[in-house]
């Protein structure tokens, strides 16, 4: 193996490590909801993913998540919260509000329509 090949191998290993870290180990962006007028609000920007992607809310208080979809690619055109039986279409470059009241504690995943992009809803007491 000449030097270039060794460099490529090392580079490959580093890249693989980075991929593993990025997808599995790095903590998502966490945000807590702002409470006002009896409703908890969070704004989430949808662009290739959800930002923030970990949403912390309180149980029993109505939640309003404002999804602003900053892109037009078809992957993220739908957001789904299967545990609360919610699915909404998100028109491109618009804000869509999803309102519901979380009645139980725990960590719930929400995803795009195809299940590729994830976020997490954390409901605390």
């Amino acid at each position: 193996m000449d030097t270039t090949e060794i460099m490529v191998v090392v580079g490959g290993v580093v890249l693989v490590g980075f991929v593993v870290w990025f997808f599995f180990l790095s903590e998502g962006e966490r945000a807590a909801a702002r409470v006002g007028e009896g409703v908890q609000r969070i704004r989430v920007v949808v662009k290739g993913g959800y930002s923030p992607d970990v949403l912390v809310v309180k149980r029993g208080v109505p939640v309003e998540i404002d999804f602003y979809r900053d892109e037009a690619s078809s992957c993220t055109e739908q957001v789904v919260l299967p545990d609360f039986r919610i699915s909404r279409m998100l028109p491109a470059f618009e804000t869509t509000s999803v309102t519901f009241t979380p009645d139980r504690e725990g960590k719930f995943t929400f995803t795009c329509g195809m299940g590729m992009v994830h976020g997490q809803l954390v409901v605390e007491n």
């Binding site: 593993v20 997808f23 299967p82 995803t111 329509g113 299940g115």
Partner: peptide, 19 residues
């Protein structure tokens, strides 16, 4: 928008798929 249990498996796989 709901998920059938059979789909949850696919969703989990999707999560690992890209990396």
């Amino acid at each position: 928008g709901s998920r059938a249990p059979v789909a949850r498996l696919a969703d989990t796989v999707s999560g690992f798929f890209t990396p």
